[in-house]
Amino acid sequence: MAAFNLTPSEPSPFILIGIPGLEAAHIWISIPFATFYIINLLGNVMVLFVVSKEQTLHKPMHLLLCMLALTDIGMSTSVVPKALCIFWFNLTSITVGGCLTQMFFLHVVFAMQSAVLVTMAFDRYVAICNPLRYNTILTNSRIAKLGLVGLIRAVLVVLPMPVLLSRLSFCANHIIPQTHCEHMAVAKMSCGDITVNRMYGLVIAIVVNVSDLTLIALSYVLIIRAILRISFKKAHQKGLNTCTSHICVMLMSYTPSVFSYLTQRFGQGIASHVHVTVANFYLLVPPMLNPIIYGVKSKELREKVGKYTCRR
């Protein structure tokens, strides 16, 4: 009779330990985590609010800033709340389904952000190399369509990752030395062959990072060539000045993410807490700084933000 009462057991949850080796300092580490997250939310929500309210800001560049703000909010929100639960309440457990869901949304947002940065590079290329046709080439509807294409690409590219992971059998040790569920960190807990997972992770890196960086580099080669053809020195400075915000954001987004990817695969000699810290760096710092960078460089946006924040 006991056999008829048996039910399939639920998969054991994963354990996110936070920053390995620095567990005793989690309370102190949570302070910059929470601070950066609050600044991120305030800055990016302000950008979304001001652009939505001001009709004069309904332009392609500001719509791209809104897309970037949404990806910044999504990237940090998919990680920070759970990390703070680990730091403050020691709530390290996460279900397998919750882990795969977190991983899916995190990678989708990152791929979407990469697409937005490529579109921003194209926007700068058209503005500098073909300014007379800017308004006809880059309309608001075309920007919206490019954003939709970027989202569809992100979902289609990332979706196989949790599907492949869900087919693996995991060993007894379910401890993830991270603050969040990252693709290879979860795959390494499997008792089976993860060659397919490794290869697909490499494919994603090539499709998203390498291809997007190539398109961005090509855009800037054409931009620099167009600027050098201009004889006036002031025009050189003005042309380069319009690109500095995008270059800063791009460097902050890609540099730590590429480093994190390489250390996850090849950096066995790097201390775990260093890898985890760098992995959290690009999830916290760039989303916090992006609205500040564009707010400082964009006079029009800065004035509109001041209109709402400096009201008596």
Rank of each mutant, 00 (worst) to 15 (best):
A3N: 10
F4G: 03
S9I: 11
P11L: 13
P13A: 07
P20H: 00
P20F: 01
G21A: 06
E23I: 00
A24P: 02
A24D: 11
S30E: 01
S30Y: 02
F33Q: 03
F33V: 08
Y37K: 05
I39D: 02
N40E: 11
L41I: 13
L42H: 05
G43K: 01
V45L: 14
V45Y: 12
V45G: 10
M46I: 09
V47Y: 02
F49M: 10
F49A: 06
F49W: 12
K53F: 01
Q55W: 02
T56R: 09
L57H: 07
L64Q: 13
C66Y: 03
T71A: 14
G74V: 05
M75V: 07
V79D: 03
I86R: 00
F87A: 11
I94N: 01
V96S: 12
G97Y: 04
Q102K: 03
Q102H: 05
M103D: 07
L106G: 08
V108I: 11
Q113V: 03
A115C: 14
L117T: 08
F122W: 11
F122Y: 14
F122Q: 10
V126N: 02
L132P: 00
K145D: 12
L146T: 06
G150K: 07
L151N: 04
V158C: 09
L159H: 04
M161V: 11
A172R: 10
H174C: 10
I176N: 01
H183M: 07
H183Q: 00
A187T: 01
S190W: 02
S190H: 06
C191I: 06
Y200M: 07
V207C: 09
V207K: 01
S211P: 03
T214C: 12
L215E: 03
I216K: 04
A217N: 05
L218R: 06
Y220E: 05
V221Q: 12
L222I: 02
A226W: 01
I227H: 11
R229T: 11
R229W: 12
I230V: 13
S231K: 15
S231G: 13
K233F: 15
K234H: 15
K238C: 14
K238N: 15
L240G: 15
T244R: 13
V249D: 07
M250S: 15
S253P: 00
T255F: 12
P256A: 11
F259R: 00
F259Y: 04
Y261V: 03
L262V: 08
T263A: 10
Q264T: 08
R265P: 00
G267P: 02
I270F: 06
S272N: 07
H273A: 07
H275Q: 09
V278E: 06
L283H: 11
L283P: 01
V285R: 04
N290S: 14
I292P: 04
R302F: 08
K307F: 03
Y308I: 12
R311I: 11
R312H: 13
